[in-house]
């Protein structure tokens, strides 16, 4: 593989990679520069591909005048709670799946893989009916529950694969040294697989952070809306304020980008270990 490639192939690869980079970045660039333009420069047919007058007014309006800070707070609470609950459940269940032999072991794994094929839209309608009977509609708890349940199968599969990578000997050594099983789990194994725990948390967090349809169906009061739902109210208006909307889009993206940048190196590994949902 270390042999030099022929020149035409190198050039083709370079062009492909550059072209794809442009294709990915151009929409984000357009989103970003729009958020920095004053209204007059946005609504003009003489389109500025480089903003002439840079302003932060859109962001100031977004955070000070609109309800965005409420949506932001709701999204943070919701995603943290989903990440926390999802990860705790996955640590317990993943440990059981990786470390124990038990009846129905295969069934559990196939069952979890199967749930990955169930489309969310399909679950949504009966869930809403059930939620309205249980009084869970339009509550933060109900929404957290909805996302936590949604994240369980993937988190369990992911967590199990991380447990599988830690050699059993470590635990046995800890047991011989007088730890009990829970002590060895929390004191020896979990610290070792902290990257896995963090990756699971981030997947659950970002899933909840980015979802729109679940929150649209479950939440109706303004005070409980998340960022996508809150901003979505404005996107169907005839006269969209694109400056504020794009600023909102950027503000909604930054947290999940930071999370993903943080876990970049786990993504490929985690995915190839049998995870399936994009």
């Amino acid at each position: 593989m270390n042999k030099k490639q022929r020149a035409p192939i190198v050039i083709v690869r370079f062009v492909v990679l550059l072209g794809y980079l442009l294709m990915v970045l151009a929409p984000f660039y357009w989103l970003f520069i729009t958020s920095l333009k004053p209204k007059l420069d946005i609504l003009t047919t003489n389109i500025q591909y480089w903003p002439k007058h840079i302003t932060f007014d859109n962001y100031i309006y977004l955070f000070e005048t609109s309800n965005f800070h409420i949506f932001f707070k709701n999204s943070i609470i919701l995603s943290l709670a989903t990440g926390l609950f999802g990860t705790c459940l996955a640590v317990l269940g993943g440990y059981a799946m990786a470390r124990f032999k038990f009846r129905g072991h295969k069934l559990v794994i196939y069952g979890l893989l199967l749930t990955q094929l169930i489309p969310g839209v399909l679950v949504l309608v009966p869930t809403i009916i059930m939620y309205s009977k249980l009084g869970l509609t339009n509550t933060m708890g109900g929404l957290i529950l909805f996302y936590t349940v949604g994240t369980i199968p993937f988190s369990l599969i992911l967590m199990r694969s991380f447990f599988d990578r830690i050699p059993m000997d470590l635990e046995e050594a800890a047991l011989i040294d007088g730890c009990n099983k829970m002590q060895s789990l929390f004191k020896i194994i979990l610290p070792l697989m902290l990257p896995g725990v963090i990756a699971t948390f981030i997947f659950a967090f970002v899933g909840a952070w980015n979802d729109l349809l679940g929150a649209v169906m479950i939440i109706s009061s303004d005070s409980l809306k998340t960022i996508p739902v809150g901003l979505n109210m404005f996107i169907h208006n005839y006269d969209i304020d694109w400056g504020v909307m794009t600023a909102g889009g950027i503000a909604a993206t930054v947290p999940s980008l930071i999370m993903f940048a943080f876990m970049q190196r786990f993504v490929v590994n985690g995915l190839t270990d049998g995870a399936v949902k994009g």
Partner: peptide
């Protein structure tokens, strides 16, 4: 991949 459908749709 990290960006929400909402932001992509908006963009």
């Amino acid at each position: 991949w990290a960006v929400s459908s909402f932001v992509i749709g908006l963009t």
